[in-house]
Design a protein around this nucleic acid. Structure first.
Lengths: 343, 343
DNA sequence: GATCGTTTCGTGAGCGTTCCCAGTACGATG
DNA sequence: CATCGTACTGGGAACGCTCACGAAACGATC
């Protein structure tokens, strides 16, 4: 029954068509496409011409079907209360990740996964080979997801030092401790002696490390007072903490806040209390976010190389994909102090 | 040669295995997986049990290969100078998009594409059926990408009203005009009469619409002065503009800025000029970003429902995918005024 | 009880790749 | 000149799924 049947070759040319055009076989074209070297110069050129002429692009689905690789990495955002914290991060991190990935054939798949059901779905995707690797951001301290994924043999990389030991699961993080220490030391160099810090939550690595950095900078110094109040990285908590600190020691002349938002809150409270910044009290924040640029006075702040962190995250994934089973060390990126008006 | 050959069935069960387990054929299992109704209650149950028992999940690659659908939508971020503008947007938009998509089987693929080469790659992906639809954000006014994509028959949706007419390409945007008008009217209701606006760039729809809203609110009002200075949505430009405005009319008592960043800049300049906010001058921004919450005084600002905009973006895509060829109208979401201290 | 329509199910034929194993051609080697 | 190794190349056999088609089973109808 001629003429029936669906229209062949709706659009996109296939390997076979390229082969016909070039007068070679499927296998040879495949070799060319995948950059195998055992193909003679002549046929190489013929095939390349055919590919160009036909505008051939390999069909990813067909390829994945046989290679059992998806050429896709998953970026999972565990959107939780950590939102405040991750907000400024997110865009820059994705940008870095994406940029690094664009040099490869890897696609970036994004997924918000807060509920358990969604975590399950992530595991499914991994187990069924729908993704070749997973990057995770902002997860709860006790989240078993990364461990499960790694146990299933999937390449995994974390953004932010995980709380519980995730042995074998590499992560990238900023040098929170070093950054906090540098900020505090900067304050000390300026002659400040009555210190206070508004720390982040102590169930998050960033909170812990930044407090440790503050302590470390002041360790062993004589003639220095140090006060700690805890916040939750949010601005309101910064205000509260500052009020509390002021009541405990009205003579504070240096404040290191573990986030810009908290520093901004502290600034408000200080102004309300009639303190001049930086004359009476110097303040340093953390993150170098938009907020830092727009407070009055503008905040001196510790900058994290978020973009680079995204790139490293990608690299952590790609090297695991290329060399399965390799143990990778965490990547800690340096921070730097951006000096503005507040200190 | 027994014992040789690769290990069958490395892990994941296939359709065929489920069929064997349930005592039916491939076709039948496929029918239940895809929710076809012509399968009897008994076998339905048997198959479902088998699926559950084996933990079967369909292989997307195999499915795509035959259906020629990828079950993936691409989110393209044309990262350009529009970065400042898109920054606060990005996270919330992605979140909305992702949330809406998670109710479907669609995956979210993300790509930063600024260069021409990358744009080309997007077109390739679309033409080769690697993605079922494309959402675009923050593109240049004259970017031909969406038009090309739409011409190729791909479902496309834009975030933000495009500058040039993209007939047939739907978009979602906030009611910039209405929001600006409401802010300006709010100022008017408070008895303000000497108005100024710091507009956004006039080659972006958001800039144009917000200025139009300002004008519209004041249109026909007697005894009102109105001044316009142009900025670029960035904070420095807000400062400059404010300085200029003040020199043109030192008696300004109301300022509407087309972005929070510019409003923050204006706030600084006003303070430097010795004006009290809101007593002498009321200021309203746009975006309701983090910055707005952290200026001093805190900014009254026009909020855009960014999360919902992301959801609508997804919806625009899914309905096009489900019903190809359907013409869709733009979606304009209402804004609202968030009152804080500056006005 | 033969015929027909419905509902339900099984099966073959791909979808476009990659992988692997056989060729084939050709120069080198004994 | 027979033989062998080497460099290329061709093509069969999957990969796991959907789709169209036809077979089977079962009532209903005349």
């Amino acid at each position: 029954m001629p003429g029936s049947g669906r229209v062949r070759t709706a659009g996109r040319p296939t390997l076979e068509q390229v082969a016909a055009e070039a007068g070679v076989s499927r296998g040879t074209v495949s070799r060319v496409v995948n950059g195998s070297l055992e193909v003679s110069a002549g046929t190489l050129k013929a095939v390349q011409d055919a590919i160009r002429k036909l505008g051939y692009v390999p069909n990813q689905a067909a390829r994945s079907l046989v290679t059992r690789r998806s050429d896709t990495v998953l970026f999972v955002v565990s959107e939780s209360e950590a939102r405040v914290f991750s907000e400024p991060f997110f865009a820059a991190l994705v940008r870095g990740l994406s940029q690094e990935l664009s040099a490869t054939t890897l696609q970036l798949n994004l997924m918000m996964a807060s509920t358990a059901r969604q975590h399950e779905r992530v595991e499914h995707l991994v187990r069924n080979g729908h993704v070749d690797g997973v990057a995770l951001i902002s997860l709860h301290g006790d989240d078993p997801l990364p461990r499960n994924l790694a146990a299933a043999g999937a390449p995994v990389a974390l953004s932010g030092r995980p709380m519980s030991g995730m042995d074998g699961v590499p992560y990238v993080d900023a040098d929170n401790l070093g950054g906090a220490r540098a900020a505090t030391e900067y304050l000390y160099q300026q002659g400040r002696r009555r210190f206070a810090t508004i720390s982040g939550p102590q169930d998050m690595a960033a909170g812990i490390d930044r407090l440790a950095g503050f302590r470390s900078a002041l360790k062993g110094r004589r003639g220095v007072t140090r006060l700690v109040a805890q916040g939750d990285f949010g601005q309101a908590s910064g205000e509260h903490a500052m009020r509390e600190l002021l009541s405990r020691d009205p003579g504070i002349d240096a404040v290191f806040a573990a986030s810009d938002l908290m520093a901004a809150g502290a600034l408000r409270e200080l102004r309300a209390a009639g303190r001049r910044v930086p004359d009476d009290v110097a303040v340093i924040g953390f993150d170098d976010s938009d907020v830092a640029r727009n407070t009055d006075p503008a905040l001196t702040s510790v900058r994290q190389p978020v973009h680079d962190m995204g790139k490293e995250l990608a690299r952590l994934l790609t090297t695991q994909i290329d060399r399965p089973g390799q143990e990778l060390a965490p990547v800690i990126l340096p921070t730097d102090l951006v000096c503005r008006e507040s200190a």
